[in-house]
Design a protein around this nucleic acid. Structure first.
Length: 513
RNA sequence: GCGCUCGUAGCUCAGGCGGAUAGAGCACCGGAUUUCUAAUCCGGCGGUCGCAGGUUCGAGUCCUGCCGGGCGCGCCA
């Protein structure tokens, strides 16, 4: 496939876990969806820069640093789940913060020490980051996403870029007199109730954002105590990405609840002239993962579901399904002289379960319009019918099975002859061929509209149409050699399309299942 | 209150920048296996596309209003 004619440098901000906190299903969506964009846009020939904007900065670290000055920092040797241990310590530290005035003031002091680079504070912070990052890495590897340590560019990175940006905004967006307020939408920076605020107006000169009382809602970029907020960090980040990384397209993958925040800081950045005419910025939103009770997914205890536990269970359930089916396949009647394939070894079964389980979770997250909430259901995502990962992986595995048998029977190392003319005699053959021809269209749509589910739909349609073809047109026992070669070619193209398409969704196919 | 988002078959969802009889999966009923993996396939059942107006030759799709659900709205992220 040809790369796009005009490659752009594209920054994709996704995943964004928080140091000292567990990754949960909320991070799953951002990670899985953002990864698709990274793969699809890179495939189309763009220069993709992944940015993992991790939460590694802020007042909560003051608490933890103060705490670990007199308590041991959890390590992998002492705790099975280090992140859990730190989170528990945070809770304890927070309780003490509420009751112990001296502890509280020392915690506040520690925030400043961290920012100014005091060695001890810095060391404790780095250790917390290191163990948290290790936990994230394990999940990324399990999930098979592209994110690497080098993609991390968290909140702390922007620490010394915050003050300059606030100063720049003050300079570029000075308060206006009443008679200067006529032309177009505009913004101004001024202090309000002790905080530094950006006030934004629309084309009619009306406040662009309002609070519940109908009053103007500014965006606070520096608190009355002088501290900065996430709005400030996001402003610094967008400036960095456009002006230092040279991004022409910036894509943020976060949940839909942050939409107002994004509208505000995009508007402010635009007013300041930071987003040029040749640059597009997009906030890619997504809905929540719900439990069967239609409320955001939680454990029975009411805590968020840990991503690690969720992925472990996916593998476990996939393995159980494989075992279930494995018993059926070992029926005495299933022997067969040449056709029957060997049973799976335990190791193979584990590998299949791993891939199917993870694929099922990822695919379930991608298959629906990303803006809608979806109900998390093991039964549905692991089902072999319908728009699921196992169904499509099975379609692929069936084709590969044909390939192996063909190689066996016809003794050719390459049974897919490239130059073969494809004859579309049967309606099912025609349907498959027509669908194959629309691959580029499907990929382009994801690149343009950032909708992974449209690629899912395409692949599901292809798999469905292939299954029909498979049922009604014998390949190895085709009426003549020309038909056989034609059908082999159709199989090959379908397999390669499924592998490519699923690969762009971050899903690995398997040869047998 | 304002804003965003959603409302399509009993359930879960596609389709939505206008185009012909609105499509899948599940569930339910009935079929297909001496033949390439039945983890599959085929058939049947099932929808006034939330409601009401409007634009149009033509509206599930665009506009307005209303109803219902979810989310958000100054010093958290």
């Amino acid at each position: 496939m040809q790369p796009v004619e005009q490659p752009r440098r594209i920054v994709i901000d996704y995943s964004q876990p928080n140091i000292a906190k567990q990754m949960h299903v909320g991070h799953l969506r951002s990670t899985v969806i953002g990864d698709v964009f990274a793969r699809v846009l890179a495939f189309e020939g763009h220069e993709v820069i992944r940015q993992n904007h991790i939460g590694d900065w802020g007042t909560q670290f003051g608490l933890l640093i103060r705490w670990y000055r007199e308590n041991p920092l959890p390590t992998p040797e002492t705790h099975a789940d280090v992140v859990d241990a730190i989170a528990a310590d945070y809770k304890a530290a927070n309780e003490r913060f509420q009751t112990d005035e001296q502890f509280a003031s020392e915690a506040r002091l520690a925030v400043g020490q961290l920012q100014s680079g005091e060695p001890e504070a810095r060391r404790l912070w780095e250790q917390m980051c290191a163990v948290s990052w290790q936990a994230f890495t394990e999940i990324y590897e399990k999930l098979d996403v592209l994110l690497q340590p080098a993609d991390v560019c968290g909140e702390s990175f922007y620490n010394d870029r915050l003050a300059p940006r606030v100063a720049e905004l003050r300079e570029k967006l000075p308060p206006r007199e009443a008679d200067e307020r006529s032309t177009g939408s505009w913004a101004e920076v001024r202090d309000d109730r002790g905080a530094v605020c950006v006030f934004m107006y629309d084309e009619k000169g009306e406040p662009r954002f309002k609070n519940p009382d109908g009053e103007m809602l500014p965006m606070i970029i520096q608190k009355s105590d002088g501290a900065y907020l996430y709005a400030t960090t996001d402003l610094a980040a967008i400036h960095y990405r456009i002006h230092e990384l040279g991004a022409k397209r910036v894509i943020y993958v976060t949940d839909a609840r942050q939409k107002l925040h994004f509208e505000m800081f995009f508007a402010a950045a635009r007013a300041a002239g930071w987003i040029g005419d040749d640059v597009t910025v997009e906030h890619v939103t997504f809905g929540s993962v719900l439990g069967t009770n239609r409320k955001p997914l939680k454990t029975r205890a009411g805590t968020p579901v840990k991503l690690r536990d969720l992925l472990d269970e996916a593998e476990k359930r996939a393995f159980a399904l494989l075992e279930e089916r494995g018993r059926g396949a070992e029926r005495p009647g299933d022997h067969g002289e040449e056709g029957a394939e060997e049973a799976f070894t335990l190791e193979e079964k584990r590998e299949i379960a791993r891939r199917v389980g993870i694929a099922a979770v990822k695919y379930a997250d991608l298959r629906n319009d990303r803006n809608s909430d979806y109900v998390f259901s093991w039964d549905k995502m692991l089902a072999f019918q319908g728009n699921t990962a196992p169904y499509m992986m099975y379609a692929y595995a069936r084709i590969r099975s044909i390939y192996r048998k063909a190689a066996e029977r016809f003794g050719s190392p390459d049974v897919y002859a490239a130059g073969v003319t494809i004859a579309l005699a049967d309606p099912t053959e025609r349907a498959v061929a027509l669908r194959l021809a629309r691959l580029r269209e499907a990929i382009d749509q994801v690149a343009a509209e950032l909708t992974p589910h449209t690629l899912c739909t395409y692949l599901y349609d292809l798999a469905t149409e292939f299954m029909r073809f498979y049922e009604s047109c014998p390949v190895l026992k085709a009426p003549d050699e020309a038909a056989r070669l034609s059908r082999m070619r159709l199989c090959d193209l379908t397999a390669r399309t499924l592998k490519l398409g699923l690969g762009l969704l971050g899903i690995e196919v398997i040869e047998r299942m």
